[in-house]
Design a binder for these strands. Structure first.
Lengths: 160, 160
DNA sequence: TTATTTTTGTTGCAATTACAACATATCCTC
DNA sequence: GAGGATATGTTGTAATTGCAACAAAAATAA
């Protein structure tokens, strides 16, 4: 009985987009586009590789042994597999990462950060940090940032 | 005196990225990527054009006379001018918009939505609406959406 | 007026991203 | 363990995006 009513309400909510919902959506799209383009521009001005390189280096640097399987890295970055393949191609050509055989699963190589990759990340960090601060985080209080982080995290998970 | 102190504090804030600041930043990047890819996938499943078409049709439809100057449209969408040129090329080839001479300024044509463009927007609307709801707005309360809209708007303006 | 600078928009070309098809390895069922 | 299904990655090709150079109109200055 209540199950039926709840389902009806849920379905109704799923297909309704309120004014605030649309404003928040547009806000998300424009905010991410604006901030991303400014941060990318900062990196470029400093003759550094794009943000996606930083993301890869950060995830690998944090991971056990400085390496991750292709699919795990793709999942953390929410990147399509074929795009990651080519991103890793470029980074490997630069020496920032290497592909290494995963002894436990011969389907694909794991990706390993190199000492050069770690050095690159450290070189990128201050530029990245200042750019994110100027383009994004300096516009909020700590409380607002914590709230944003909490709210935005909900968008990550796949549709039910 | 106070001016000096204020400036120092401000500069300090500008170049600091707290843990919450970084979490919120990563949240913004991943949230927009996840939601955008799901909404694009929905449009594609329905054999409809990409989200950027909807944005153009919406802005033009709202504008006085259904037309906007290239630069004004680019500014509202936070799109680079050369990307807009080619987006409009594609939409004009499809008949959704036309370029019309702006009598007041012969440098560039304004862009005008056509009746076909309005019809296309109406056809896209329910798919767009449901996709945004399922991928984004249904995960929040109305109050949260209003708060998100307000906060995210701050990211839009250029760095000072 | 004429020259110079700024604004607005397009285009050639290179880099990146998207999609579909493919290849190979692992898993699962019988 | 044989056969089919699933998981993991790569690659060919097309579409899109980014960048720098260019073209033309308008604004500004001399």
């Amino acid at each position: 009985m209540f199950g039926g009513i709840a389902t009806i309400c849920y379905d109704f909510a799923m297909t309704t987009l309120t004014k605030d919902g649309e404003k928040a959506w547009v806000g998300l799209m424009l905010a991410s586009r604006a901030a991303l383009s400014r941060v990318e521009a900062s990196l470029k001005r400093a003759s550094l590789p794009p943000l996606s390189w930083y993301d890869v280096l950060l995830e690998l640097g944090r991971a056990e042994g400085g390496r991750l399987r292709h699919k795990d890295l793709a999942a953390r970055m929410l990147l399509e597999k074929y795009n990651l393949t080519r991103l890793i191609d470029r980074m490997a050509a630069d020496g920032a990462v290497v592909r290494v055989q995963d002894e436990a699963d011969y389907r694909g190589a794991a990706i390993q950060i190199t000492p050069e990759g770690r050095a690159l990340r450290e070189k990128m960090w201050p530029v990245y940090r200042d750019a994110v601060a100027a383009s994004f985080s300096a516009r909020f209080t700590d409380g607002e940032l914590a709230m944003l982080a909490g709210l935005l995290q909900r968008v990550r998970r796949p549709n039910s």
